[in-house]
């Protein structure tokens, strides 16, 4: 009896160690983004992304992926395409200019509580000898239009191995692998992986007023990205 109890304790202890010990540092929504809970913004103005990648098309394509997930997190999201058009009509064509505008202007014009800035850091395929790797990296940031403070930020990275997972030896294996690389890279769908990156980013965002967990998700955990921690 004592024996089996001891084993149970041991198993539990090992399990707890496994859960906490060696993984990446974790943090919670409440600890990391307290200003979201203090200011309780209701709306997000999603601006066109800033493209810092080498792919010129990334901006237009990525822009189509952000509206839905942020709305589903319970915020009012302004219609992305329309906002982008309106800004152009107002004479702001350049994302750089848009990203350097005083934040209260977005409140004056749109009545938005916050602005979402997204930067496409990586959107590329890199080829190795017999393999290819697709990388998408997005940095997202929500700024208050009332206090100009940063309320939330996170970086999402998706790396996809497109080499088809072939590890077979011999000439036959090499040829098969090369073919798989060609096929997979042709079919590589950046936007699909951008959606995955968004899901990773957005899981760290405190939910908004239209979500059933509103003001109840402070203890939700995620991987801490704060530099120097």
């Amino acid at each position: 009896m004592i024996n089996s109890k001891f084993i149970t304790y041991l198993v539990v202890a090992v399990f707890i160690l496994f859960l906490t010990g060696c993984g990446p540092a974790m943090t919670t929504k409440g600890a990391e983004f307290p200003k979201m809970y203090e200011q309780q913004p209701r709306s997000i103005l999603i601006l066109p992304p800033m493209n810092e990648s080498t792919d010129a098309e990334a901006k237009d394509y990525y822009m189509t992926t952000t509206e839905m997930p942020f709305a589903l997190m319970g915020y009012y999201t302004f219609p992305t395409e329309m906002v982008s058009d309106i800004m152009k009509q107002e004479g702001v064509y350049d994302t750089e200019t848009l990203y350097n505008m005083p934040l209260d202007k977005f409140y004056d014009y749109f009545g938005a509580d916050t602005v979402l800035f997204t930067r496409i850091k990586k959107w590329d395929l890199s080829y190795m000898v017999l393999a290819a790797k697709l990388t998408i990296q997005i940095e997202a940031k929500i700024m208050s239009t009332k206090t100009s403070e940063e309320l939330w930020t996170y970086v999402g990275t998706v790396v996809v191995d497109l080499s088809g997972g072939n590890s077979g030896g011999g000439i036959g294996g090499l040829i098969a692998s090369a073919i798989a690389t060609a096929v997979n890279s042709a079919a590589a769908d950046y936007v699909q992986h951008a959606h995955t990156a968004n899901r990773r980013i957005i899981s760290t965002l405190p939910v908004g007023p239209y979500h059933e967990w509103y003001m109840k998700d402070q203890s939700l955990k995620f991987i801490d990205q704060t530099p120097g921690k």
Binding site: D60, Y61, M63, T64, T65, E67, M68, A71, L72, G74, E81, V191, H195, Y210, H211
Partner: peptide, 18 residues
């Protein structure tokens, strides 16, 4: 149930850009 219905909005938005 999802919070909202989007149907193929996201796909068609992307396609309209592509």
């Amino acid at each position: 149930k999802p919070l909202y219905t989007y149907g193929n909005y996201s796909e068609n938005y992307y396609n309209s850009k592509k």
